[in-house]
């Protein structure tokens, strides 16, 4: 969660609010922030650290692990209408990549601003080719988009 805090200014610039959530109590959140995370990120965690004791919220989001009694690494991107645009769920030992989260947010924002008129192909990043789906593009994606554009 410190990795997300580290990129918080960039997320804020994109108009993204961050909420973190685990089954730990708010008292433990305070201790973790004050005694460890604040040593990794200056000023500590800048967003609300939510407590979901019992995993009631995690259960409806489908990411609660009944056996372990914890929440798995579920990350949800929710748009201004409250609609889930994307999610990624990992088992506990592997951390997420905040770069990918930022990339996806930028892609979803571009699509939203175009009112669905634009689509971002695989590996899209700001500055790369955007597709405008329509009758004229059918069968002609190969002319405007190459697989090497999906690479970094």
């Amino acid at each position: 969660m410190s990795a997300v805090a580290d990129r918080y200014p960039e997320l804020q610039k994109l108009g993204v609010e961050v909420l973190s959530m685990s089954v730990d109590s708010v008292f433990v959140h305070k201790m973790w922030n004050d005694h460890e995370l604040s040593k990794m990120v200056e000023g500590g965690i800048p967003y609300p650290m939510l407590s979901d004791g019992g995993g009631n919220v995690g259960k409806i989001y489908g990411i609660y692990d009944e056996e372990g009694g914890v929440e798995t690494r579920g990350r949800f991107i929710i748009d201004p209408d409250g609609v889930v645009q994307g999610f990624e769920v990992l088992t506990p030992p592997v951390g997420r990549n905040v770069n990918e989260t930022l990339r996806q947010v930028q892609a979803f924002q571009l699509v939203r601003e175009s009112k669905g008129g634009k689509a971002t192909p695989s590996g899209w990043k700001p500055g790369k080719t955007v597709l405008e789906p329509g009758p004229d593009l059918v069968g002609k994606v190969w002319e405007v988009w190459k697989t090497d554009m999906a690479r970094d």
Binding site: L14, L19, M31, I77
Partner: peptide, 18 residues
Amino acid sequence: YLGKWVLLCFYPGDFTFV
């Protein structure tokens, strides 16, 4: 938070390692 983009991140627990 309606009207804003939200990044909701669940994680296994405070003081875990990743």
